[in-house]
Simulated assay, not measured.
Amino acid sequence: MHMADLGDIRLHYRIDGPEDGAPVVFAHALGTDLRVWDRVVALLPPGLRILRHDMRGHGLSDAPAGPYSMGTLVRDSERLMDRLGFRDAVYVGLSIGGMIAQGLAAKRLDLVRALVLSNTACKIGTREIWAERIAAVEAGGVEVLAEGTMQRWFSPRFRATPELAAWRHMLERTDRGGYVGCCHAIAGTDFMTPTSGLRLAALGIAGSEDGSTPPDLVRETVELIPGAQFRLIRGAGHLPCVEAPEAYATLLTEFITAQGHLG
């Protein structure tokens, strides 16, 4: 395990692949951690140097008092990439991680060569929806959201498997303050204008059974970027990297190869 001390925050991160590999960065969803990418990373071709980290308030990273802003989450990823020498990377963001990806690309094109926006949008939900969720967690803990979240995250087929329990536990064990802090960040974010100004290669990925960021929402965001591609993984929900890792890894490999990123 590796911890990066950035002064005001310590972030847990993991690097896989050769030191001279082509850089790829993954950012996870709210209520998960870097393990959400395990199956996909194992299926990607050799020659990639892959960085994953637990965002603040999640996993083994620090969980400082919130609320957090999206700018703070973007800066965390930016500083970590600078610290570890990840430049000109393909950046893969899932849900809130996809919002971080949009913000970072708008701020630091030297760090981001191409974007994968997975199960995300330039704006997710409304302030009212997030205020209700924040109030529920502050009153009863993250576990009060577990049942509804599992319904939105996963297809009926996956919810019938024993594996569902592991993802429910991951959500329920997320730091309460960290979860609420990131909810505030999402509630205050609308990236329509900066994302529509992006000019770089981009791929959007959606799951047909996603109850959090439905396919049309993902498509509308991706279409803000000229020339961007959109792919739908049928039968998967909000975390297609968990439900359909082979299909997800195939899409990533094709996109990364098309960018000439594998040499």
Rank of each mutant, 00 (worst) to 15 (best):
H53R: 08
G260M: 02
S208M: 09
A22D: 01
L30W: 11
L43E: 07
H184I: 04
M1D: 09
G97V: 10
T32S: 03
G227A: 12
F158N: 02
G237R: 00
S61P: 07
D5M: 05
E209V: 13
G237T: 02
L34E: 02
I225F: 03
V36C: 08
S196E: 07
G227C: 13
A139F: 07
V242N: 06
A206H: 15
H184E: 04
V25P: 00
V242K: 14
L94N: 09
M170P: 07
G207A: 11
A206Q: 12
L43N: 13
T126L: 00
G207R: 07
G103L: 00
R39P: 02
E143P: 14
M170I: 12
A187E: 07
H28N: 12
S69P: 10
A185N: 08
A201N: 10
T174Y: 06
Y68F: 13
I9T: 01
H184V: 00
R87W: 05
D216Y: 11
H53N: 14
H2Y: 11
P18L: 10
L34W: 01
L84K: 10
D82M: 02
A131G: 13
L217F: 15
D110N: 12
I50C: 11
G148L: 03
S212V: 06
G93R: 07
F158T: 01
R75E: 05
A131N: 10
L217I: 13
I233S: 12
I9R: 08
H169D: 14
M1N: 11
P18N: 06
L198S: 05
P46Y: 02
E220Q: 06
T213M: 01
H12A: 03
A42I: 03
E138P: 01
L30S: 01
I256M: 08
R173H: 15
R173W: 08
G140D: 03
A89Q: 06
S61A: 06
A244F: 13
I134R: 04
R176L: 14
L224D: 14
K107H: 11
H2W: 09
R56C: 04
H12C: 15
D210F: 15
S77Q: 01
G140H: 07
L43Y: 04
A160D: 03
S77V: 15
L262E: 12
D33Y: 05
G98W: 05
L43H: 07
H184C: 06
R219D: 07
M70W: 12
T195A: 02
I9G: 14
L252W: 04
L200M: 10
E163Q: 04
F158D: 06
L200W: 07
R152L: 15
V41P: 03
T257Y: 02
A187W: 10
A206V: 14
P46G: 07
A101W: 03
F154Q: 13
D20S: 12
R168D: 08
R79L: 15
A29D: 05
R234S: 11
L111F: 06
N119Q: 03
G21Y: 10
G71P: 15
R113D: 08
L11A: 13
Q229V: 03
R14P: 04
